[in-house]
């Protein structure tokens, strides 16, 4: 059976829900047609009732798949955003350093970093060299502002993409972990020990070549639970955090629902680890 007119059912039969669902998602037509009549004529459905029943099933399946794809695609957007944010921050800081050297030779008391660049950008240039330096300062400020906007965007979207991870790690660290793993799905498939050292790949390879101790943590170092724990216990803290992050990533990828129990369990575990330090004092 075939229908040359381009309806969604053209190369499917009612017992092939996968194909019908793919056709609904991927095909197109310039103009609508009397699809129910044509589907019956083409032998796709016995009558109009059977046609609409098949359409109902196919649209539900197609939309369920499309929703899942769209949500998965969102982690791709999050990865782009966090990488762009890091690039903007890094570039702004590098340029601010260059600017600081330059501005120091032109203006008295030029400050350092982005704040220094803001000061320079506000100055009235006198002569062509100052004009260039002030213009560069303006670019630095714009880049820093863009990084801030990207951060706000990540803070808004990460909880949608990965509610558990964003709660446990904070939205930006959650986005960074997803980016380092290459997506939420691959993060969800990584063991806790790998998540613990994500972002410390150089140190890890040095260790594997026998030239360094094994790293205790990668980017999760910025998390308060790691950074705020005393040196001797930092390894345990990083391990405990990574374990719960792995559970969070799996929950976000496979179920997509928020589970407050993960955070409670981590809080309890951290209290135990930190109590050791207090007992020693």
């Amino acid at each position: 059976m075939s229908d040359e007119t381009g309806g969604w059912f053209a190369d499917a039969t009612p017992d092939e829900p996968e194909r019908a669902s793919a056709a609904i998602r991927q095909r197109s037509a310039d103009a609508p047609g009397d699809w129910s009549t044509r589907a019956v004529d083409a032998g796709f459905a016995a009558d109009e009732t059977a046609y609409y029943d098949a359409l109902h099933e196919a649209t539900l399946a197609a939309t369920r798949t499309a929703v899942r794809e769209a949500e998965r695609a969102d982690d791709q957007q999050l990865m782009h955003a966090v990488r762009a944010m890091d690039d903007c921050e890094r570039t702004a800081n590098e340029l601010a350093e260059r600017l600081h050297e330059w501005a120091g030779s032109l203006f008295a008391g030029a400050g350092t970093g982005i704040d220094g660049a803001r000061d320079v950008a506000d100055r009235d240039p006198d002569g062509p060299a100052e004009e260039r330096a002030v213009a560069l300062a303006e670019r630095v400020v714009e880049l820093a502002d863009e990084a801030a906007d990207l951060r706000a965007h990540i803070e808004r979207t990460a909880p949608e993409v990965a509610p558990n991870l964003a709660t446990l790690a904070g939205p930006v660290l959650a986005a960074r972990l997803i980016a380092l793993a290459g997506g939420l799905e691959s993060l969800a498939k990584k063991p806790a020990g790998t998540i613990q050292v994500l972002g410390a790949e150089d140190a890890l390879f040095a260790h594997l070549r026998g030239r360094a101790p094994s790293p205790k943590h990668g980017v999760i170092y910025v998390h308060e639970y790691v950074r705020g724990t005393r040196e001797e216990d930092r390894g345990s803290a990083a391990r405990a955090l990574a374990g719960k992050l792995a559970i969070a990533a799996r929950g976000d990828h496979y179920r997509g629902e928020f589970n407050p129990a993960i955070e409670r369990q981590l809080e309890e575990r951290m209290a135990t680890i930190r109590a050791r330090g207090e007992a020693d004092e």
Partner: peptide, 10 residues
Amino acid sequence: PETYAHVVEP
């Protein structure tokens, strides 16, 4: 609309 005209009837 062309992305759903193959599904939607008049």
